[in-house]
């Protein structure tokens, strides 16, 4: 690491003194060599040192961005923390904004890595995509990505909409999947964000895929938050659209209904990266993180960050990394 810092200051000094291209290139290459060599977790064969992809543009620290949500911010801190302990120099850029904005930011190179969700990313890139199951979405993603962008290994963790009922409702109607729910659909009121009424994954999809037309629909504009929860727990609505990573599901013993026909497109957490900025070593670190990141972990992290504790995403991420063996 010391080595990399040394090279870094030399590079900056070189950049300040002169704009001569050969000098800058030489410095960049030496930095890339240093970066590739200094990580504790890096490939012992150091094969990246000979790869041109790792050179040239890798002189800056890796920038890990995140969207506006705290979940995205926490995952970004996990990525950043894992990369740091593997010896990479990392900067974080939280709260970039919506997908429109941050995909462009990665394309332009102001952000190198950002956590995203497989389904929403696919739909953003290709509005006509029909893939819905987890493997189909991952298979469709590479072709849909613009030049220069790629996604790394997806985590088993999924953060997606789900039809959620109380335990009492589940027992009363014998519900474990949306198929069961469809049989008694006419007796149930669904509460969700207003777009659920019109979006393909909402009421239209429920009818088309499960032949389920609910008794009523209550638009509650808080993304399955406290108002939705209150309405669900007081039986004003019987079914709510709540994200799978919301702690309130576990805290209130709610039942998430299975979705065998993929009404809700798979939303696995994965890093969206700028291909030529992220070396194989860095990608390997992120792949290892993804392999360990499960939905329960996200629930737990969300509870720490958004619950009463109000921990910072960085602190929560650091604990997770430590527990999963990514500590420095």
């Amino acid at each position: 690491m010391k080595n990399a810092v040394l090279h870094r200051s030399r590079l900056q000094a070189a950049g300040r003194r002169t704009l001569a291209l050969p000098a800058a290139l030489a410095a960049a290459t030496s930095l890339a060599l240093a970066l590739a060599g200094c990580g504790a977790n890096s490939n012992p064969l150091e094969d990246t040192s000979s790869q041109p992809a790792a050179g040239g543009t890798a002189q800056a620290p890796l920038v890990v961005g995140s969207s506006g949500s705290t979940e995205s911010q926490t995952i970004a801190e996990i990525y950043a923390g894992a990369l740091r302990s593997a010896g990479f120099e990392v900067e974080t850029k939280p709260g970039i904004g919506s997908r429109e904005v941050y995909v462009k930011a990665v394309e332009e190179g102001s952000v190198d890595i950002i956590p995203d969700y497989s389904g929403n990313l696919l739909l953003h890139l290709d509005g006509n995509a029909t893939a819905a199951s987890a493997p189909d979405v991952l298979a469709a993603l590479p072709a849909a990505l613009p030049e220069g962008l790629k996604v790394l290994e997806a985590a088993p963790a999924e953060s997606k909409d789900a039809m959620v009922v109380t335990k009492a409702t589940a027992e009363k109607y014998q519900l474990s999947s949306i198929e069961d729910m469809a049989k008694v659909c006419g007796e149930l009121t669904i509460g969700a964000n207003p777009e659920f009424r019109e979006r393909e994954y909402g009421l239209p999809g429920l009818e088309a895929k499960y032949n389920c037309v609910p008794k009523d629909f209550e638009p509650i504009n808080d993304y399955g938050g406290p108002a939705t929860l209150k309405a669900l727990l007081t039986d004003q609505i019987q079914v709510a659209d709540i994200y799978t990573t919301t702690p309130s599901i576990e805290d209130n013993d709610l039942v998430v209904l299975e979705d065998p026909k993929n009404l809700f497109i798979a939303q696995q957490v994965l890093p969206l990266v700028k291909a030529d900025a992220v070396s194989q070593d860095a990608a390997a670190v992120l792949d290892k993180v993804s392999a360990e990141l499960r939905t329960e972990d996200l629930v737990d992290l969300n509870r720490q960050v958004s619950g009463d504790e109000k921990r910072s995403p960085a602190d929560a991420a650091a604990d997770w990394l430590e527990a999963e063996g990514f500590g420095a």
């Binding site: 207003p194 777009e195 019109e198």
Partner: peptide, 19 residues
């Protein structure tokens, strides 16, 4: 009030924003 489950002209605003 259209933000949470009621109607009124706000429905057009809130729904328009949502979709």
């Amino acid at each position: 009030v259209a933000y949470i489950n009621l109607g009124g002209l706000g429905r057009f605003l809130i729904d328009g924003l949502a979709v």
